[in-house]
């Protein structure tokens, strides 16, 4: 098991390297630069800036410098948020994004599995149909619609909850963004659970369990549920990585100081280092969660061997 983890982590290094390399050059080949503002800067200032940030050097040298620094954890200064290094910006924003994302993930997972299981057990009933219709709305309505609509109803019309901001970090501030973030994922979990539960309930070994007089509850919980969890566990990795690294849309709508916004802002402003920093962050999250899920998978399914 330990050797499996180590091997997987080792194989993540080249992946990470390729991701960073591709991102670096893609970013640089895009037209425009961080200091091409609406009103052009005087050439002298521009030159000074370029020199200060070493952007006047040949691309390959910039690349090597960046890689060298990145290995030591130095992702350089942000070009747009001039007083901060990228590491500082991410370090400041990440806790907010992760806290919000964690609650959203919990809500999506627990809610989705419960809803999906109920729908599967009452397949083709009215309950199934209505629950899954709501889930379909959840999948189809993007969070940039859900967010504003939630704000309109609960913050503006009913004034129950704050319209945005982090405030003191209490639950009141978290509820709306959490729902906006969790709803689409909850719906995905619900649909996945329903599908794989129905599949699992049809397998031969469920028939065996029923033929041996095991009560319905133990058939569902002990035998069907565990098998049905496998595809859900697989989806957990990309979902957790996406939720915990923050969402540009939700953080913008609810003015939350997380890292999700940096990514889009960085790309639009050609803030090379900031974008690179977020790319690395997301890639690391994806790799770590994939590994965690593989380990979990092995614990759930004895047929999977990690050796």
């Amino acid at each position: 098991m330990l050797s499996f983890v180590l091997r997987r982590l080792a194989s993540a290094v080249p992946t990470l390297f390729i991701v960073v390399t591709i991102s670096f050059f893609l970013m640089r080949f895009a037209p425009g630069g961080p200091f091409n503002l609406e009103r052009p800067l005087p050439p002298a200032t521009m030159e000074n800036l370029m020199r200060a940030y070493q952007l006047d050097q040949p691309l390959w040298r910039q690349y090597l410098t960046y890689m060298g620094n990145a290995v030591t954890g130095d992702f350089g200064p942000s070009y747009v948020y001039k007083d901060n290094s990228v590491a500082e910006l991410i370090g400041k924003g990440l806790p907010y994004s992760m806290e919000l994302g964690f609650y959203a993930l919990l809500l999506a997972l627990v809610g989705g599995v419960i809803v999906g299981t109920i729908a599967a057990l009452r397949q083709n009933s009215l309950l199934d149909f209505s629950v899954m219709s709501v889930a379909t709305i959840g999948v189809t309505v993007p969070n940039f619609v859900v967010g504003p609509v939630l704000t309109l109803i609960f913050a503006i019309m009913l004034s129950w909850l704050p319209a945005g901001g982090w405030g003191d970090g209490s639950l009141r501030f978290l509820i709306l963004p959490m729902i906006a973030l969790a709803l689409p994922q909850l719906a995905v979990f619900a649909r996945l659970t329903r599908g794989s539960m129905i599949e699992a309930l049809r397998t031969d070994h469920i028939r065996t369990a029923r033929a041996y007089g095991l009560p319905a509850r133990s058939v569902v919980v002990v035998h069907a549920m565990r098998g049905a969890m496998l595809p859900i566990v697989s989806y957990l990795a990309p979902c957790a990585a996406a939720l915990l690294t923050g969402s540009a849309v939700v953080e913008t709508i609810f003015t939350i100081p997380g890292v999700g916004r940096y990514f889009v802002l960085g790309a639009i402003n050609r803030d090379y280092t900031l974008v690179m920093g977020t790319v690395v962050l997301i890639a690391i999250f994806v790799i770590v969660f994939n590994l965690a899920v593989d380990i979990l998978y092995g614990l759930l399914d004895p047929r999977v061997r990690h050796d």
Binding site: D204, H205, Y212, G213
Partner: peptide
């Protein structure tokens, strides 16, 4: 029915590969 199934009347099936819970 569950008091009879598995105690008084039991079954074995054609597909031994899939009739047991793999987990």
């Amino acid at each position: 029915l569950n008091a009879i199934r598995g105690a008084k009347i039991t079954m074995i099936f054609q597909e031994p590969m899939t009739s047991l819970d793999p987990l």
